[in-house]
C-alpha cells in the first residue's frame, strides 16, 4: 500500500481487496463484543482536518480511530485559525509539529489532500476533496456490495445522478472497475463531465433502459440549486427522468440492491419507499463505513513509518 490514500487510483486490486478483507476481519473480531476497542493504534495521533462540515464522515472516521485506540483531534475550519485565513500549508506544518501520524482531510478544493501530503510526514487520508474523490466512501460501497451480493467481479453497477460534481462517483468509478465491476453512469448530459469517454464505464442517458440488468443502483445526491445554473430545468423533471421510485425499483432484478452515499434528498433522486425498502443498503453503508475506515487507518498507520 502507498503511504497515503488520496484517490481510489492509489489502490491496485490487491490493495483494495486487502482493505475489504481487513474490514471484514475487524468487523468479525468486534462482532458481539462488549468492548468494541482494539489497542492497535495506541499512542498514535489522528487529526480530522475538516474544512467542510460533514458530521457523518467526521464521526465515522473519529469512531474508527477511537476503536483502534488512536488519539483523535478534531480540527474544523470553523472557529480555528483556518477561519482567520491561515493557509493550508501553515496548518499542515502546525499539525506536523504536533506529531500527527495520520491526517484525515475534508476540503472543498480538489487536490488539497495531495498538496497536504507534500508537506507532512504522516499519512494523509482523503475524506472528500472538492469534486475530485472520496475514496473511503467507495471502499465502503464496494464492501457493502460484496457483503450483500458475495462478489464484485462482474457485478453491474449503475451510478445515477450528478456525476459531474460528485467525488463519490469518481472514486466509485475507479475503485469498482479496479475490482472488476462493470459500471454504467446514468445522468443528463449536463451532469456528466466532458472527458467521461475516457473513463472505464458505459454511459447512458436512459435510466429505464439500464435498470433491468443492474445488480446495484447507486443514487447520487443531486442539489436542487443546480437547476439555477441550468443543469436541468426543474427538480420535478429531474426526478421524473432520473429519480428512483417504486415503479422503477420494480423492474430491478430480484436480488439487486439500492445504495445512496447520503445525505438523501427524499423525493428528488430517491423516493422514500425505495430508501426504506429491503433493497436499500443505506443503513448498512453507514455501519460498514466504520469498519472500512478502521481497516484503512490500520493499514496506513499500523506499520512502521517510512
Amino acid at each position: 500500500m502507498k503511504r497515503h490514500l488520496l484517490e481510489a487510483g492509489d489502490l491496485d486490486r490487491d490493495d483494495a481487496t486487502l482493505v475489504l478483507d481487513t474490514a471484514a476481519q475487524i468487523e468479525q473480531a468486534l462482532a458481539g463484543r462488549e468492548v468494541k476497542k482494539l489497542p492497535t493504534l495506541r499512542g498514535r495521533t489522528v487529526v480530522n482536518l475538516f474544512y467542510e462540515d460533514s458530521t457523518r464522515t467526521r464521526i465515522s472516521f473519529e469512531l474508527a480511530a477511537k476503536r483502534l485506540s488512536a488519539d483523535v483531534i478534531n480540527f474544523s475550519a470553523k472557529g480555528s485559525s483556518v477561519s482567520k485565513g491561515e493557509s493550508l500549508k501553515d496548518t499542515a506544518l502546525t499539525l506536523e509539529a504536533m506529531g500527527a501520524d495520520g491526517i484525515v482531510v475534508r476540503h472543498g478544493a480538489s487536490g488539497a489532500p495531495h498538496r497536504l501530503a507534500h508537506w507532512v510526514r504522516g499519512s494523509v487520508v482523503n475524506a472528500g476533496d472538492g469534486t475530485h474523490e472520496h475514496p473511503t466512501q467507495a471502499l465502503l460501497d464496494a464492501y457493502t456490495i460484496r457483503q450483500r451480493l458475495g462478489r464484485l467481479d462482474g457485478v453491474r453497477v449503475v451510478v445515477v445522478g450528478d456525476v459531474l460534481h460528485s467525488r463519490v462517483a469518481r472514486s466509485n468509478v475507479w475503485l469498482l472497475s479496479t475490482l472488476g465491476a462493470e459500471v454504467t453512469l446514468v445522468a443528463p448530459p449536463t451532469l456528466l463531465p466532458v472527458g467521461v469517454g475516457s473513463w472505464p464505464v458505459q454511459v447512458s442517458y436512459d435510466l429505464d433502459a439500464v435498470l433491468p440488468k443492474a445488480d446495484v443502483v447507486m443514487m447520487l445526491r443531486v442539489q436542487a440549486e443546480r437547476m439555477n445554473a441550468s443543469f436541468f430545468p426543474s427538480a420535478r423533471e429531474y426526478s421524473r427522468r432520473y429519480g428512483l421510485d417504486a415503479r422503477r425499483m420494480a423492474v430491478l432484478p430480484d436480488d439487486a440492491i439500492v445504495m445512496h452515499p447520503g445525505p438523501m434528498n427524499r423525493g428528488m433522486e430517491i423516493a422514500a419507499e425505495v430508501a426504506d425498502s429491503a433493497r436499500s443498503t443505506i443503513v448498512d453503508q453507514v455501519g460498514n463505513g466504520v469498519s472500512v475506515r478502521m481497516a484503512v487507518l490500520y493499514l496506513l498507520l499500523g506499520g512502521a513509518p517510512e
Binding site: L18, D21, T22, Q25, I26, Q28, A29, L38, P39, T40, L68, Y298, L299, G302, G303, A304, P305
Partner: peptide, 20 residues
Amino acid sequence: DITLYRDDLRLRGVRALEDT
C-alpha cells in the same frame, strides 16, 4: 487473531488479518 493487539507493528509492518 492477535495482529491488532501486537505491540511491535511498527517494527514488523502491517499484515493481513486472520479469523477470530
